[in-house]
Computed example of a mutant assay.
Amino acid sequence: MKLVYVFDAYCGWSYGFVPTLAELVRRRPGIEVEVVSGGLFTGSRRVPIRDFGYVEGANAKISELTGVTFGPGYARLIADGSFVMDSAAAARGVAALRQVAPARIVELAAALQHAFYVDGLSLSDPATYRTVAAATGLDPDIAVAAFTTPAAAVGAQDDFARAARLGVHSFPTLLAVDGDRPSTLAVGHATADQIEWRLDALTTAS
């Protein structure tokens, strides 16, 4: 059995799920986690952030439930309102980091969300991947090169297709997959204790 974590790097609830997933991986170090990007802000949803009038209220709720904080760089983006979140570019970044250090993708996906939600860095900008790489001990040149390759764009589209095949339309969603059978462990928000209870119940049932 492995876990499949379907998230979007530009999703605030996915950002709020970072501590839960980190704690779960800490408790179960041998478990395999596949990280898949969803396409939350693509097509007609690629609009200035000011068009999402609910953002500040949603962020307050996320902080209240999960304890994550939103940093000053991100606050400046919200105040300006012109920033456009592009999930295809963010997914390309996830695919690039996964290519560079596949065993560390849970940690690196969290670092990518930190870059946006704390520092206010664009996930469409190659320079962001240089910053994330330097902060996590990767080679910045290799990370930037991976982000700009066609393979990263293909990886992003493959992720979107994988999320669709799994029937995931809300982010984040954490699944346990045993063979071809996915079981939902969490959607939106859950504690590590709740997920472990569900995992144990699945293991007992099988």
Rank of each mutant, 00 (worst) to 15 (best):
K2A: 08
V4P: 09
V4T: 15
V6G: 07
V6A: 09
F7M: 15
A9S: 13
Y10L: 13
C11Q: 02
W13A: 00
F17E: 04
A22K: 04
L24E: 13
L24F: 08
R26F: 06
E32C: 10
E32H: 11
V36H: 02
L40N: 06
L40G: 11
R45F: 05
R46Q: 13
P48Q: 03
I49S: 14
F52A: 08
G53M: 07
Y54G: 06
A58S: 14
A58M: 13
N59H: 13
A60H: 12
I62W: 02
E64C: 00
E64H: 06
T66Q: 00
G67D: 11
F70G: 09
G71A: 01
G71W: 05
P72C: 06
I78L: 14
I78W: 07
G81Y: 01
S82Q: 02
M85A: 09
A88Y: 09
A91R: 09
R92M: 05
V94T: 12
V100G: 08
A101Q: 07
A103G: 12
A103M: 04
R104Q: 10
R104N: 05
L108P: 08
L108H: 06
L108K: 04
A109N: 14
A110V: 11
L112K: 02
L112G: 05
H114V: 14
A115V: 01
Y117K: 06
V118T: 11
V118C: 04
G120W: 01
G120E: 03
L121H: 10
S122K: 03
S122I: 01
S124A: 13
D125M: 00
A127R: 00
T128P: 05
Y129Q: 13
Y129F: 15
R130W: 02
R130H: 07
T131I: 09
T131G: 04
V132E: 01
A134F: 00
T136A: 04
G137T: 12
D139H: 10
D139Y: 07
P140M: 08
D141K: 01
D141R: 01
I142G: 07
V144I: 05
A145E: 08
T148V: 09
T148Q: 15
V154W: 10
G155I: 00
Q157V: 11
A164P: 00
A164G: 10
A164E: 11
R165A: 15
G167F: 10
V168L: 12
H169W: 12
L174Y: 01
G179D: 09
S183L: 11
A186C: 03
H189K: 14
D193I: 09
I195G: 04
E196C: 14
R198H: 05
L199R: 07
L199D: 05
L199E: 10
D200C: 08
L202S: 06
A205P: 15
S206L: 10
